[in-house]
Design a protein around this nucleic acid. Structure first.
Length: 552
RNA sequence: UGGGCUAUCGCCAAGCGGUAAGGCACGGGGUUUUGAUCUCCGCAUACCCAGGUUCGAAUCCUGGUAGCCCAGCCA
């Protein structure tokens, strides 16, 4: 894991923690937490937060908790919790402790009672709509609720009755008594508890009142002894409230909230609501669709956890509103796979070639290196025979300038094999090229041809030995850099984000591949054996990313 | 036009008063049985703008400008 390595460049959070340690703040401890709400799958933006929280803890010999912020049962589920745990672990991190905000419901209730006893919270009977009106605007102060002057005894009785289920949903709400004229709208008597008769995935029907984020999060942090509560920038305006609550209550610790900017990645969306919509309206095939920026989607597409960690390291941590180019993410997986993925040959759009001077029944077994720069990755055996398949666009009847593949009367190198020459083009009645007649030079296996230069090298498979495969070519999900800025982001979904090729031919050695295996199909890109749909009977590969292409 | 935050190369990002790191992208050369990889070279007299302090400013001060966040009984 990269956490132990010396970072190439630092960030402001590391500076803060370093200084806190040298000041012996929090007794020199570093305890962080990753606190997702289990209302969807984790995405690449969460990966940034996970790497930061777990990374800082590891770097400073501290600890990091996983905490489910499960205070809004309407949207949450066990399925999401399980997926989240799996994704965090897959990313390579282990939490010190696993908690749930719901573990603290009883303590939270007691703290709320304490606030009421102090005169710092009250039960309000205003409707949601009235509260909104009373709140004022950005430029005008709000006005106080008539219930603000309720006595402590009344508030205590009412709050208890709220818990006992004596009121309807929405009839009352517990509010912090702060300042209805605060220039920070979040401080205008924010709601702390609401009545909601919803079955909770963990506490079942034990509660009919649920604490709000602003009340729950700071106290949960304090209970767990969190020292540095790292969150995204939109919570910046909530920090005064976070501190207000902890200041009023006698909590076991004084965590410090620090905000950083959330990840924005071009050509995708990173909002759980929108990702859920893509799934629910079937624009993609589930949360783990390889086009999704979810951890599960990236994993299924073939991204390694190391590449995602590398990405998070490279983009850095700041408070700037920044947009990361998709090329940065793609570059991370290319770098990993170039280094580690064994090579193989696959023909996506086959064109038949008959080698006229090759003996009919002959077949040779070629021993081919799995990686051109890493002999330690071994070799594999590839059969060569009279009829082979090449990529349709590796032949051109009227070649464009600088074309260095096969042309009529020209020669080309078959990767890891012989040099062939095209003698004749066979077309069908419709005028389409259906076959090429070639000859091979038997003296070019493993050596350069005599007296001439052959520039092009193309990949191929032996027709009779090749395996059928379905290959899924994925492209960016959206065709504009910032889909979120559209009136309706669904209008800019890329209709060609998935192209399924059903009659591809791959080399025979791939018969033994297993779900999740990664390969570089030479000259095409990196591909992953699909973890759900691939089988021995029907191989299915997902394109993770193309090779860099400086020609076309 | 309330409050908070941010502004360094096309995109990220170091820098914390001593004279602009690095990555991605891009351009060019070399190697190469992947137009891949690898490798070499180039790529901000300049840090949102305008003043000021200083021997010296991206870093400090003053005043602007632009962008982002906040008016859920969501998180």
């Amino acid at each position: 894991m990269s956490a132990a390595e010396t970072p190439a460049s630092s960030n402001f959070i590391r500076h803060i923690i370093t200084k806190d340690i040298s000041d012996n703040k929090h007794n020199g401890n570093v305890i962080t937490r990753f606190p997702p709400e289990p209302n969807g799958y984790l995405h690449i933006g969460h990966a940034k937060s996970i790497c930061l929280n777990f990374g800082m803890a590891a770097e400073f010999k501290g600890s990091c908790n996983l905490r489910f912020d499960d205070t809004n049962p309407e949207k949450e589920s066990i399925e999401f919790m399980q997926a989240i745990e799996q994704d965090v672990q897959w990313l390579g991190f282990n939490w010190s402790n696993k908690h749930h905000a719901s573990d603290y419901f009883e303590q939270l209730y007691d703290y709320a009672v304490e606030l009421i006893k102090q005169g710092n919270a009250y039960v309000d009977s205003l409707s949601a709509e009235q509260i909104r009106q009373y709140r004022g605007t950005l430029t005008e102060p709000g006005k106080e609720s008539p219930d603000r002057s309720r006595t402590i005894e009344e508030n205590l009785a009412l709050f208890s009755a709220m818990r006992q289920g004596e009121f309807d949903d929405g009839q009352y709400v517990l509010r912090a008594k702060i300042d209805m004229a605060s220039p920070n709208i979040n401080m205008r008597d924010p709601a702390l508890y609401r009545i909601r008769r919803v079955h909770h995935q963990r506490t079942a029907d034990q509660w009919c009142i649920y604490p709000m984020y602003d009340f729950t999060h700071c106290i949960s942090d304090a209970i767990e002894g969190i020292t540095h509560s790292l969150c995204t920038l939109e919570f910046e305006a909530h920090r005064p409230l976070y501190e207000w609550v902890l200041d009023k209550l006698q909590t076991p610790a004084q965590p410090q909230q620090i905000e950083f900017s959330r990840l924005q990645l071009e050509y995708t969306v990173v909002s759980k609501r929108k990702l859920a919509q893509l799934v629910n309206e079937n624009h993609v095939n589930g949360w783990d669709d390889p086009r999704m920026p979810t951890i599960a989607g990236l994993r299924r597409a073939g991204y390694t956890s190391a590449s995602i960690r590398d990405f998070c390291e490279r983009i850095g941590i700041t408070k700037k509103d920044s947009w990361i180019e998709m090329g940065v993410l793609e570059n991370c997986i290319r770098e990993d796979l170039n280094e580690n993925a064994p090579r193989a040959m696959a023909v996506l759009h086959p064109l038949r070639i008959v080698i006229e001077n090759y003996p009919d029944a002959q077949e040779e077994i070629l021993e081919v290196s799995n990686h051109p720069q890493k002999p330690e990755l071994g070799t594999r055996k590839i059969p060569f025979s009279k009829v082979i398949l090449i990529e349709q666009d590796d032949f051109a009847q009227t070649p464009p300038p600088k074309f260095k593949r096969l042309i009529e009367g020209g020669e080309v190198r078959l990767r890891s094999s012989y040099v062939i020459k095209c003698n004749e083009i066979i077309k069908n009645d419709a005028g389409n090229i259906i076959e090429l007649r070639c000859t091979y030079d038997p003296d070019t296996l493993g050596k350069k041809p005599e007296g001439r230069k052959v520039k092009g090298v193309i990949h191929w498979v032996s027709e009779q030995h090749a395996l059928d495969a379905e290959i899924r070519l994925y492209d960016r999900l959206f065709n504009v850099a910032n889909p979120e800025s559209e009136n309706n982001f669904l209008d800019v979904v890329n209709p060609d984000s998935l192209q399924t090729l059903n009659h591809c031919k791959v080399e025979a050695s791939l018969a033994n591949s297993e779900a999740g295996n990664l390969f570089q199909f030479e000259r095409i890109g990196y591909f992953c054996v699909d973890s759900k749909d691939s089988s021995a009977e029907k191989l299915v590969f997902n394109r993770t990313v193309t090779l860099r292409d400086t020609w076309s």
